[in-house]
């Protein structure tokens, strides 16, 4: 059995319209590791996440999660191991109350209602929105929706967390609260994002994608500070380590 949580070997994916989204991608995610996946729009970040969960299947190459190969047969186990928080929390919240949304996953795994309740309360407490459990999801603010979406994933007790643009459309305070929350999780994480400053706080390792290929895989602090590499990948050095235009002080993290 592999000691890696996720192992992707030479995966290539071509959409039915012929667009090659990923080409020869290989990487591993080990226990307690957090990886940031960055890249310009259309670089293949979201496609990669969908492949990891078996929502799409690679044309070539293999993916295994916790030693299990991702196939149609193993999907229920794979999806129990990986929790994916979608880019738009509205896609994830479709029940009439926050409680029912968070309980949706555990109920699908046929847990008894006492256990479901325990998990829901625990997940809502972790993200700090237990008081919203009876509220309708559409009435929540952006930050609360994001928290509810993450709770709906946590209630399944996943081994690995995958987050697609978690700070997207959040105000600065909600963004900071979310980053603080995510930093308390011990799960191995994969975070696809454009929020490069967040990566400094959450991921020690980063993979940079360009046109469906891995351009770099290494320490976040090294890669994100590499101006040449970032420019080549249509990215920018994060604001937090750019030279201050007024005092020329470089805020290195």
């Amino acid at each position: 059995m592999s000691h890696y949580q996720i192992e992707a070997n030479n995966i290539t994916f071509i959409y039915p319209d012929g667009h090659q989204a990923l080409k020869d991608i290989s990487f591993t995610l080990s226990q307690r590791e957090s990886i940031g996946i960055i890249g310009a729009n259309g670089a293949g970040k979201s496609t990669l996440l969908l492949l990891l969960l078996g929502i799409l299947f690679p044309n070539e190459g293999t993916i295994s999660v916790g030693g299990l190969p991702v196939t149609k047969k193993t999907l229920p186990h794979i999806r129990e191991k990986i929790g994916l928080a979608f880019q738009n929390p509205d896609d994830q919240l479709f029940m009439t109350t926050v409680y029912d949304d968070v309980a949706f996953g555990p109920r699908n795994y046929k847990l008894n209602e006492d256990e479901v309740e325990k998990r829901v309360v625990q997940a809502l407490e972790i993200v700090g929105i237990l008081h919203l459990k009876t509220r309708a999801p559409y009435k929540l603010s952006g930050g609360e929706k994001r928290a509810a979406a993450i709770a709906s994933v946590l209630s399944m007790h996943p081994d690995i967390l995958i987050l697609d643009e978690p700070t997207n459309a959040l105000d600065p305070k909600s963004r900071r609260r979310l980053i603080n929350l995510l930093s308390t999780f011990n799960h191995p994480k994969i975070i696809a994002t454009h929020d490069l400053d967040m990566l400094f706080n959450l991921c020690e390792r980063t993979i940079i994608l360009k046109d469906g290929q891995i351009m770099a895989d290494g320490l976040t602090t090294d890669l994100l500070a590499d101006e040449t590499l970032m420019t080549l990948c249509n990215l920018e050095v994060p604001l937090s380590i750019q030279n201050c235009s007024t005092c020329t002080y470089k805020h290195m993290l």
Partner: peptide, 11 residues
């Protein structure tokens, strides 16, 4: 997308 999110949670 909604359906996918349901499938991801064991639907």
């Amino acid at each position: 997308r909604v359906y996918t999110s349901m499938c991801c949670r064991g639907f």
